[in-house]
Write a protein that binds this DNA or RNA. Structure first.
Lengths: 197, 197
DNA sequence: ATCATACTCGAACAGGATGTTCGAAAACAG
DNA sequence: CTGTTTTCGAACATCCTGTTCGAGTATGAT
């Protein structure tokens, strides 16, 4: 379990690739541990030395991607005050655009509901956190959680559409759609009429 | 398999209740067929005479609820032209408000991702169908599917929030939130500035 | 270059869940 | 009342899971 060991990195990567590949091919729900083992060329006992079960592996893969997204997001939107609420979504879409394979597994039809729902939860938390100061500034009549949930679900809905339609146009276009569709609602809730930027 | 037979109705109902109850208690994913059998007091072979597997039972239960919703929706919004896009959501929320137990299983955290994602798909289809004429009227720059997906995801996101927070306020309040949050985006996409009603 | 470490391999194992089968008994509709 | 349909009960093969353990081998540190 030492991350600095090359053997560990190799097996972890092999398992990760096998899981994503199989997920894309036949859907997460229908994957068996044995199939992951076969494709990754890893023996049973080794698998269980790293992960408790299939879900554990999934979450592990998931966390990698998610941590990277969080880092990118933190880098692009350094502090609390952000002028454009859709900027968060835009970074998400860019990240998805450069990691299509993984996102296909996470958000696509093939990926299975399990993964998508998990992404929805975690992404909701992340967006909620980033939107908090934005929502706290203006005191709005709607619960902040509700607005945050709305934003997360709507933004993720667009992403889901994008993935399922095989990434048409580009991230900027999708972000613009986000500005058109989901941002007005947030601004309305905050009592503002027109976008800030 | 004759629906007119009382025995069939009894077992179907018993299985349905058992599934929903267990889903609420421990989550759909962790339910075993044996547990359903025990609670429903139905023998193994009888179960498989009705459903291919656990998912089959789930979808069966799901279809019941969904058919009823579709009927209600068709009754309340008879034809194509509808003045208020949020009306669809309002009917959905009312339906959820009067079937809380089932919706808790479908949308709640406990229900598991499998169910929610399925609901998301089906509800998306249904809303898409009902929104089609509305979107076709105005030719908007965004793909109609994208707008429909946005609406479905956003409206369902609000529902999910409502369920997870144990149904605060009432359906009308949630529908009003829908008007505040998600409708402006649709109107913006259509090139309109203010609500029709 | 050597060495102790700890990771992987391979094989085996018990346990549990799944889906199927079939004859006997019971409940149903007409 | 009678023929039909459904349920019961029990058994069964099969698959998948998660665990164990000793022997071999790659690895990082010295």
């Amino acid at each position: 379990m030492d991350e600095g060991d090359r053997r560990v990195r190799r097996t972890r990567r092999a398992l990760r690739d096998a899981l994503i590949g199989l997920t894309l091919e036949k859907g997460y729900a229908h994957i068996t541990v044995q199939e992951i083992l076969d494709r990754a060329d890893v023996v049973r006992s080794t698998f269980y030395a790293h992960h408790r079960d299939k879900d554990s592996l999934l979450f592990s893969c998931f966390d990698d991607v998610f941590a990277e997204l969080a880092r990118t997001l933190e880098a692009a939107v350094p502090g609390a005050p952000l002028g454009d609420p859709a900027r968060l979504a835009e970074i998400l879409y860019q990240h998805a655009g450069t990691n299509r394979r993984v996102y296909r597994a996470l958000c696509g039809r093939q990926g299975g509901p399990h993964v998508f729902r998990h992404l929805q939860r975690r992404l909701g938390d992340l967006l909620r956190e980033h939107l908090r100061p934005y929502l706290a500034a203006a005191d709005c009549e709607l619960p902040a959680d509700l607005v945050a949930d709305y934003y997360a679900n709507a933004a993720l809905g667009l992403l889901s559409w994008w993935v399922d339609h095989d990434f048409p146009h580009d991230p900027a276009w999708l972000a613009q759609s986000c500005r058109t569709l989901v941002v007005p609602g947030v601004l309305t809730a905050l009592g503002q009429a027109s976008p800030a930027s």
